[in-house]
Every structure is written in structure tokens, then in C-alpha cells.
Measured scan of single mutants.
Amino acid sequence: MAAGGDHGSPDSYRSPLASRYASPEMCFVFSDRYKFRTWRQLWLWLAEAEQTLGLPITDEQIQEMKSNLENIDFKMAAEEEKRLRHDVMAHVHTFGHCCPKAAGIIHLGATSCYVGDNTDLIILRNALDLLLPKLARVISRLADFAKERASLPTLGFTHFQPAQLTTVGKRCCLWIQDLCMDLQNLKRVRDDLRFRGVKGTTGTQASFLQLFEGDDHKVEQLDKMVTEKAGFKRAFIITGQTYTRKVDIEVLSVLASLGASVHKICTDIRLLANLKEMEEPFEKQQIGSSAMPYKRNPMRSERCCSLARHLMTLVMDPLQTASVQWFERTLDDSANRRICLAEAFLTADTILNTLQNISEGLVVYPKVIERRIRQELPFMATENIIMAMVKAGGSRQDCHEKIRVLSQQAASVVKQEGGDNDLIERIQVDAYFSPIHSQLDHLLDPSSFTGRASQQVQRFLEEEVYPLLKPYESVMKVKAELCL
């Protein structure tokens, strides 16, 4: 049975990233139509530049190519590739079939990587351009969430054990800070992308030097003109047959890092959902379990974690691919890159769409948070109580021993009897502590235990987050809708 299948058929496997999760716009960027249309555009740009620099290419040939950029006979191309065992030459023939007058000058002087690699770089750039505003929107939604809850005390956790208090907004800023680093890295790697350009079979530009009869300047002009037509500021000066596969490492490393950030955020949300302090959106008709109707599973956060793990592992592909590119190139890269580049971007696209949807509907339960604080705060307040007693004339050592005994009794009630923490009640009825009984409410005010959390939130948002989001103001209103 021949390899390949009808990918629109229910009898043929289709990647869930495309069929179930990723956005239509990201799927289109990695589609065959987008790819092969870009090949034709690159052939047109090459012909236009070659004509401008004096090669015998007519206006009629150029116009014929322009008129057929979208006229792609995919069936013919597939048949040609089956016959020739070469995808680029299959599309040269297919393009030439609908451009008979231009057929002889299509791909003039070029090698397969002229269309293959340059198209990949265009796709990487455009895919990054799709991700950047999506990530900015996630940051914006979380920034709104953090600002609104900047002063809401909550129990902090280290080692997932109760620690000092923080605020809900401050905790959210930990998430935002990681995503801001990801946004900066995505922008950097996007701006650092260079075009492969017009380089020939081993990167020496020998074929173009021959076409222009040894004119170095025209060869350099050709490279520059096509690079500018493709919208790049610069091209690699040095290439082998391909652009260095280190570029793929750079791009997928940034995406993998984004995956790590999203995994951490969504894990926190899942843990908070278990504590009943916070939940992701839950639709009115949504079913959490087929057997347990009360369940409210954090399905979206779980999906993000599941896909983020996949995204983090994909960076190993370009690392290994770059390491086995012998001399000017081997074909070890080809099949692998067809999979890992598309999957990385479709996965990143999915987790950003999902995280935006989550961040637009996060639900906080202040009463649950308050109750958990009441359970733990008495123990945390013991040092403040000791200091207040010393100020009232008591002995630190005597007070410490009193607190120690009462704390152990209260802990026994919590752990052995399943009761509430009654340390404060014990202190309130103990005559030894009568000098500070009137101060206990103040000493137990949760806001006095959150330090500068709310001020940190305000400063972080104003100095770091809002300036970073400013270039994306025009796209901030787009909502994230999930079908599944």
C-alpha cells in the first residue's frame, strides 16, 4: 500500500493539533497551500530580480507567473513527485505547466533550498508574528487579574506546605514575570531571523556568478533584492546548502521555554482548584465526569500541561538535527523538520489560546482563602504575639514557653481530632496574655502579614508589564474561544 493518505478522510490519521486544537490561522501558515504558494512567490521574486539585473526574462513571463501564483494543481504535483521522487522539481514542473512561456526560467540558477529553506524562514517569521500578540493578550488578562487582587491576602506555599502570606495578585505576578520573559525572547528570536537568500547549491553562489558572467556586484544585488522582497532586513552571508540548523534550535528553545512557563502556571491553577481557592472557567453544560456528576475538573489547565510537556520535548529534535548536518548538509534534517517545526508552533498556539481562555474567566473564592488563612495564621502570628507581650512588660522566655504549650495543644486538636485551630481562643482565655487581649485582632490582621506584596504588584505592572504590552494595544480586544 502506498504511503500517505487522504487526510480529510475519517479513515486516515490526522494530527489532533490540526484537527482538534490549533487555530485556523496557525494551521494555514503550515498548510501545503501556504507552503507551495510561497515557493511560487519566491520563484517570481527571483525572476523579477534577475530581470532587473539584466537576464533575458520578459515582462510577459513575469506576468504569467504572477497570474498563476494561486493556480496550484495539487493532484498534478503529487503525481509528479511520485514520478520524480523530488518535491521541488515536482512543483517546478507543475508551475511550468500553467506558465508555459515562463517554464524555462522558473528556478533559474537556484537549488531546492532556495524555495525550501527560504519558505521555512518566512513561515517561522509569520508563525512567530501570530504567537506574539496571543502571548501579549494572556499577559494582559493576567495583569488585569493581578491588579484587581493585588491586596487580597492568601496563604503562600513553599514545598506545598503553608508559608508566609502573600497576595493573590502577587502570586499571579510570578506567572506574568515568566511570560514577559517569554514574550521578550519570542520577539528577540523573531527579529534575529535572517533570510537564507540566493546562495546556490553549497552556499557559494557559483551558479549565479556564472549567470551574471562573473559580476560579483550583481550577485550581491540579486541576494539583497530577493531578501528585501521577502520582507527581511538581512540575509546570511555564510550558508551551506541550507541555512544553519542552529536557527531551528533557537526558535524551538524559546517555544519550549514558553511551554515550561505555561505548565507551571496551569499546575498552580490545578492545585488551587483542589484547594477550592480558584477555578478555571466551567461552562453551564460542561460535564466533569461521566460517573461523578459533582466533579469540576480543571480540564483546560490539564490540557495545557499535557501539550506543554510535548512542546518542551520537541527542542531535542533540532538539537540532534543540527549535530548531524555533515559538511554542507545531509538530508537527516528533512523529514524531522517537516514534523517538529509545525508541531512546535501548533502546540504553542494551542496552549496560548487555551491559557487566554482560562485567564479571561478565572474565578476566585475569597471566603475559602480566608478560612485557610484562619487555619494557619495563628501559628504564624506567634512571633508577633511574643513581641507584643514583651512590649507590655512580659518575659520573652516565659511567653515563648506559654505559646509553645498552647500551640501544641491547638495542633493536637487540628491533627488528632480534625478540629479547627483554636490557638487564639486559648490565648484569649489565658490570664497571662490579658495585657494584649485587646491587640489580638490587630495582630491577626492578614494584611499585616503580606509585606509589600501589593506595592510590588503595582510597581511591576507599571514599570515592566504595561510598557512591554504597549506595541500590542491594537490587538488586545480579541477574545479566545474554545470549541473543545
Score class of each variant (00 low, 15 high):
G451I: 03
A235V: 15
L108M: 11
P435D: 07
S112M: 00
A110L: 07
I249K: 05
Y114K: 00
H107W: 00
C340W: 02
P378D: 02
S12A: 12
F379I: 03
V364W: 07
E79L: 12
P298G: 02
K147I: 09
W326K: 00
I385L: 14
Q61K: 06
K233M: 10
L84W: 15
S454R: 11
T166M: 09
Q177A: 11
I106C: 05
W326F: 14
L209I: 12
A49Y: 00
R83L: 11
K101W: 07
N126K: 11
I358P: 07
H437P: 04
L272Q: 13
G104Q: 12
A2H: 15
T167L: 02
H400D: 02
H7R: 12
R190C: 09
L352C: 08
N384I: 12
Q241V: 02
R33S: 08
L314K: 11
R83F: 14
L209P: 04
Y243V: 15
H442G: 11
L258K: 03
N336V: 13
R149Q: 12
R303V: 02
C304K: 03
Q286C: 03
M89G: 01
E79W: 13
V88Y: 00
T158L: 01
V168D: 04
Y432C: 08
H442N: 14
Y13F: 10
H400P: 01
A344L: 05
E464S: 06
F327D: 05
M380R: 03
R338Q: 06
N126R: 10
R33E: 12
N384Q: 12
A453T: 09
A410G: 05
Q161L: 01
G156Y: 00
C305V: 05
T267Y: 04
A3C: 14
G8L: 15
F195E: 03
V247D: 07
A22E: 07
P162Q: 11
R83P: 09
L352I: 13
K82L: 14
L124C: 12
I265C: 12
D192G: 11
E280L: 00
I122F: 13
R309Y: 07
P293Y: 04
S112F: 00
D333S: 06
V247R: 05
A110E: 02
L275W: 13
C27L: 12
D333L: 03
S253Y: 08
M387E: 06
M389C: 08
P133S: 14
L108H: 07
L258H: 15
K147W: 12
V138W: 10
S395L: 05
L331D: 00
E250I: 06
R33A: 12
T330S: 10
A230D: 02
L174M: 15
G169D: 03
Y34V: 04
R20F: 06
R149W: 11
L468T: 13
K415S: 06
T239C: 14
S207D: 01
F30K: 01
A480G: 15
A480C: 15
S434P: 06
Q439C: 13
L209D: 15
S261T: 13
S306V: 03
E302A: 05
F345N: 12
L132M: 11
K82C: 09
G156R: 00
S31I: 02
C180H: 09
L258V: 14
Y432P: 04
V115C: 08
T313C: 14
S15V: 15
I373S: 02
D420F: 02
D420L: 02
V478L: 14
G393R: 05
L186P: 00
V368L: 05
L174H: 11
E425Y: 12
T58K: 14
Q41T: 08
L132E: 11
Q205S: 15
E60A: 10
N384Y: 07
S140I: 14
H91P: 00
F74R: 11
N118F: 00
L222Q: 08
M65F: 06
H7A: 10
G104C: 14
S23E: 08
Q241K: 02
C99W: 00
L124H: 08
P153Q: 03
D87S: 00
C266A: 11
C173Y: 00
D178E: 14
S447G: 12
Q375A: 06
V115A: 07
R149C: 08
S434F: 09
K276E: 06
I436A: 03
L275G: 04
A136G: 12
L152I: 09
G156L: 00
E148P: 05
M65G: 02
L121C: 12
R296K: 07
A136S: 14
M225F: 08
R149Y: 08
L155H: 04
H97N: 12
K66T: 12
Q455K: 08
N421P: 13
S289R: 05
H91G: 09
K391D: 02
K276L: 08
T239E: 00
I106P: 03
E417W: 08
F145E: 10
A143V: 08
M26S: 02
C305L: 03
A90E: 00
L155S: 01
L186C: 13
I386E: 02
I424G: 12
Q356R: 04
S395T: 05
L193A: 10
L124G: 04
E328L: 02
K66S: 14
A3Q: 15
R309Q: 01
Q375P: 03
I351T: 13
S151Q: 11
T267R: 03
H86M: 01
A47K: 01
R459H: 09
K229E: 05
T450D: 03
N118S: 03
C173Q: 03
D6T: 12
L362E: 06
I105G: 07
C98S: 12
Q320A: 10
Q456M: 10
S447E: 11
D223V: 00
L362W: 03
Q61G: 12
L346G: 08
I237F: 05
A411E: 04
E228C: 09
I424Q: 14
M225R: 10
H437G: 07
V262R: 02
D120M: 05
G394A: 13
D422V: 00
N384L: 10
V247G: 09
S301G: 12
R374M: 14
A381V: 13
K415T: 07
L406C: 09
S261F: 02
